[in-house]
Design a protein around this nucleic acid. Structure first.
Lengths: 252, 252
DNA sequence: CGTAGCTTTGAAGATTTTCAACCTTAGTGG
DNA sequence: CCACTAAGGTTGAAAATCTTCAAAGCTACG
């Protein structure tokens, strides 16, 4: 019982609550002792306020971040003072994997609401993963997942109409929130209309009009940030003009 | 001299010619002996004919591919029989990194001309990379690069006009070809107008018109598949309506 | 030489953006 | 507690871009 390699289920649960990365790893072949090791290099962090930055484009890359609670956006500032939003990051998702190549961040990240994260020093993670093949595999998987996500986004921006984009976006949020135990049909949009528009490659006004029209059509009910999806079937139908992805859904 | 760990510069050069992955690794910290080990698991392959598939969506994932010569496109079939092109892959570039997560391919790959590739069994690569930290790091870098590439593509599709997209696409090709020693101003487009249009999220007719207009404007000269970029400055200017990417260029 | 598949071109049509104005909300300070 | 302000959101009409439809031209390849 005092063997340090024996770890209680309770301890694992705590580790998973503390760190989304660990919770990623648990169901995917990472050994129990390994999770403890992983847990040791993870830095917990104070809450992050709405609008506060996590890192800024160009900064040296040191950590990857796992969202514990709240949400973030990643974006790049444009010349004209605007922003191009690259992604939204909900609890359980990772931020910063694109920075490995250049050793500096290729985008900025900012909290959309009061949030908390786990900070994982990448060089330590790398060292650890040479010792733990299952962790290495898991990192490969996570990075591969990022690539797939972006690929799906390309499909979305490549040849979908405005309403198909918004429907896909909403269902993506729905699914990701449901995965974390939140309601699949009612949730708050932590991002502004402007952010949504930028992310979907549309004008703000278009997004606004789409919400209005979808509400008129009985697809959903929207009150400022709060959305209730009413007709999942028809929303699905809007997205299913999608390519044969062999069961894969568009957007992460 | 008979020590198997000593490897001649000549041997390294050969290994690099044989395998783009190795050539990726050489300048980036992979030890000489490591390259030999890497080289041992790489399978060479017969030439691949134009139109021939490398893998098909849904197939089990076993290998990643490094383009030696020629070019490929990755794409997803759409319901209406069309294709959404996800990317073009030139010599020295990798294909298949998005398939790790699900252990099956998330898109299909097809040769755009007679081409040759290196086949790298991923599970062997994974095992080897646990033994060679520098190889592991290199794979992380390569995957991170894929993510950045996609990110840039999102920027392009997100808020650029049709001519900005085409200009960016052409300069991307130019730069990637130049990197491999080909001309930066004259090259053949191995992909069809249809492929370009799909990739850029435009209609074929729009792409055709854009080529015509850009030729009239003296930006380039185009004769069927052959393109000569005439006014790099103005082409650059078209792309440089781009966001502050801190020196990073749009598109891989 | 003929056909099939790309490519180009023109004109009409649709979607989306832009511009402009107005409304709402949340946050601030008196 | 209220009024004010700035930021975000909505709405309408005009304008632009891009797509769609249709047809014809060109190339490559059998």
């Amino acid at each position: 019982m005092s063997d340090p390699r024996v770890i209680s289920l309770e301890k694992i649960k705590v580790a998973c609550q503390n760190c989304s990365l660990a919770s990623f790893c648990l169901p995917l072949g990472l050994k129990q002792g390994d999770i403890e090791k992983l847990d040791q290099i993870v830095k917990r962090s104070r809450p992050i306020q709405r609008g506060e930055g996590l890192f800024h484009i160009g900064e040296p890359f040191q950590n990857i971040y796992a969202v514990k609670t709240g949400s973030f956006k990643t974006f790049i500032q444009t010349e004209d003072g605007g922003e191009q939003v690259l992604g939204f990051h909900l609890p359980g998702e990772l931020i910063g994997l694109d920075a490995i190549l250049d050793n500096r961040h290729g985008c900025s990240a900012k909290a959309l609401e009061t949030s908390s994260i786990c900070k994982i020093p990448f060089n330590q993670l790398e060292v650890l993963s040479t010792q733990l093949p299952s962790l290495q595999h898991q990192i490969f998987r996570l990075m591969s997942n990022e690539i797939s996500k972006d690929t799906n986004m390309l499909m979305l921006l490549g040849n979908r109409s405005a309403d198909e984009r918004l429907a896909t976006f909403l269902l993506s949020l729905s699914r990701r929130l449901a995965q974390r135990g939140f309601s699949a049909t009612e949730f708050n949009l932590s991002m502004s209309r402007h952010d949504i528009a930028s992310y979907l490659g549309l004008a703000v006004e278009t997004v606004s009009r789409l919400f209005t029209r979808m509400q008129q059509d009985g697809l959903l009910k929207v009150d400022r940030k709060f959305v209730r999806l009413l007709d999942m079937e028809r929303l699905d139908a809007l997205c299913e003009k999608n390519p044969h992805c062999h069961g894969k859904q568009l957007l992460p």
